[in-house]
């Protein structure tokens, strides 16, 4: 607190006794929301996390720089990059399609938020917790 602070506050606003002796009493805990996990998760966007085809791209750059940016000089590298990119796209498409299914399939390892919600709805946490207790 600055020494001039009391000059800036109105007399009615402040309790000077409070200011000189701040309230050190422990705050009493109050349970605002029930102390348990909810049966839903917030919705998240499906993200592509892989850093795709970077190695192929770098090899292509090296080749292009060597061949003076003549694409005819590096057919192998270009084909490698294209197939890699195509595979990644197909895969992410399949992933999106899998994510479209609301009910999770047992074989899926990564759940989308929708699928997690579907699972949680089927098997609410409070029943699980009861069993644990």
């Amino acid at each position: 607190m600055r020494a001039t602070d009391p000059l800036n506050v109105q007399k009615t606003d402040v309790d000077y006794a409070q200011m000189s002796f701040p309230n050190n009493k422990p705050i009493k805990f109050r349970e605002v929301a029930p102390m348990q996990l909810r049966d839903r998760v917030s919705l998240k966007r499906l993200r592509d996390t892989e850093r795709a085809c970077l190695a192929e791209m770098m090899t292509l750059f090296t080749c292009l720089a060597k061949k003076d940016f003549e694409t005819s000089g590096c057919p192998k590298e270009i084909a490698a990059l294209n197939t890699c990119y195509k595979d990644i796209r197909d895969e992410s498409m399949a992933k999106k399609q899998r994510a479209l299914q609301q009910a999770p399939v047992s074989s899926i390892r990564e759940l989308t938020s929708h699928q997690a919600n579907a699972l949680l709805k089927k098997f609410p946490l409070r029943h699980l917790m009861k069993k644990v207790r």
Binding site: D48, R51, A52, L54, M57, M58, F61, F69, E70, T71
Partner: peptide, 20 residues
């Protein structure tokens, strides 16, 4: 123009991972 595009890509190759 194609070669210029490739050169620009090569000049910015350090940022390639920003895609993901």
């Amino acid at each position: 123009r194609k070669q210029e595009a490739h050169k620009e890509a090569e000049a910015n190759k350090a940022y390639a991972h920003y895609r993901y």
